[in-house]
Nucleic acid binder design. Structure first.
Lengths: 216, 216
DNA sequence: CACTATACGGAATGCCCATTCCGGTTGCAA
DNA sequence: TTGCAACCGGAATGGGCATTCCGTATAGTG
């Protein structure tokens, strides 16, 4: 991607304390990450390490030098996804209408999750996410604030809680993870709206006559 | 269960055409089925055949004589579940208020699915259910009728379709399949209500002030 | 009671992966 | 250009699990 030969070299060791990576190593690492993103996204968590290695154009051994375990590789990918979402959440906090901001965040999270089958599965199998990098990267806290705001303004059900979000996204992921391939596109967007409708404060008008957005 | 020694014996071959099962065989078959229901329910689809055999108190060989494949065993279990649901749906059609009847059916389906981890997983991974035994046992048709009624009376969103049901149940299953064990009870019932709220016709009053049924 | 078609148990087999190992390469500092 | 530590590739290893095989046991029949 970037041809600059000079990168993060600071003489001998990189920021943290590890000896800097050799150029080819760095390149391979990226390749692996990219391949993993691609393959996991398509095949889900049980995609094989060999497959990823092949896609990345390296040997399995190389994959393992960078990520000692399949799980580690997955963790790296997931952490990244969460961080990006956290950034997005941060922006959402600045919006005018908190309820709308929340909706947007959910829609976006849903979209991301839908496209990455591995992410869906990961979330499905780790409902204790709260303790994970989700919290680390602050996503949870940010979401909580956003929700509190939405509730204060009266847009959101009073009994909605942060845990509801990963749960709902997870549900969505499941729906599509299964459908993946068959049922092309399954317009999941419709389901997102149904969920949001479910979280909306009672009394507040629901969507205008549900968009005649009929499935299939 | 039933001690009557005389069962489906009609001399030499049973109804369909297969030679009748020997008494011990019939007994074992039941044991396997029961064990499978139990173990699959707890461990989900990747529970092992050996485990089931042990639980049933028989050898693996025996399991395989009755069900040539793990998949066959699962299919048998699932088909059974669907049939029971279909019966339930039939009853629902007789109720006064179609919307309420629908809600009850969903709540019941959800409960069943929640308790059977394998069922959740199965549904999650087979969104093309429509073609499966679901249809065979008529569940799909019955549900469709029920929904049509609910819509006619104005209780249900106009754009809701039959496919929404397995999808939503599946979503629910995913949520709890993951949570299974950790997050004891996760009161999924709350989620069912959120979903139903989402399917309710706009304008119709939502639940009375959301029951202060706070999670955890 | 004897006989045999059915059933049974569970060790053995075969396949699918993740992970490990090690002889051969290659950046890159001097 | 040289030397070697850091890297590579990919064959080999090991564990898990569905499925098969076969010698033994036993309903059910005459």
């Amino acid at each position: 991607m970037d041809t600059s030969t000079t990168a993060t070299i600071d003489g001998e060791r990189t920021a943290n304390g590890k000896p800097a990576l050799r150029a080819d190593a760095r390149r391979n690492r990226e390749a692996v990450l990219a391949a993993a993103r691609e393959r996991f996204g398509e095949c889900g968590l049980d995609c094989q390490m060999d497959d990823i290695a092949r896609t990345a154009g390296v040997g399995v051994g190389t994959v393992y030098r960078h990520f000692p375990t399949k799980e580690d590789l997955i963790a790296a990918l997931v952490a990244d996804r969460f961080e990006r979402l956290a950034e997005r959440a941060e922006q959402a906090l600045l919006e005018r209408d908190p309820w709308q901001a929340f909706c947007e965040l959910i829609r976006h999270s849903a979209a991301v999750t839908i496209r990455d089958r591995a992410l869906s599965e990961f979330i499905s199998w780790h409902p204790e996410l709260g303790q994970h990098e989700a919290v680390r990267s602050g996503l949870a806290d940010l979401t909580a604030q956003l929700m509190a705001n939405a509730q204060r303004v009266g847009g959101m059900r009073e009994d909605a809680v942060v845990e509801d979000v990963p749960t709902l996204i997870c549900a969505l992921g499941a729906v599509t993870a299964g459908a993946s391939g068959k049922m092309p596109e399954l317009n999941w967007e419709r389901y997102v709206e149904i969920m949001l409708d479910g979280l909306r404060a009672p009394g507040v008008n629901k969507l205008p006559p549900p968009r005649a957005h009929i499935p299939r």
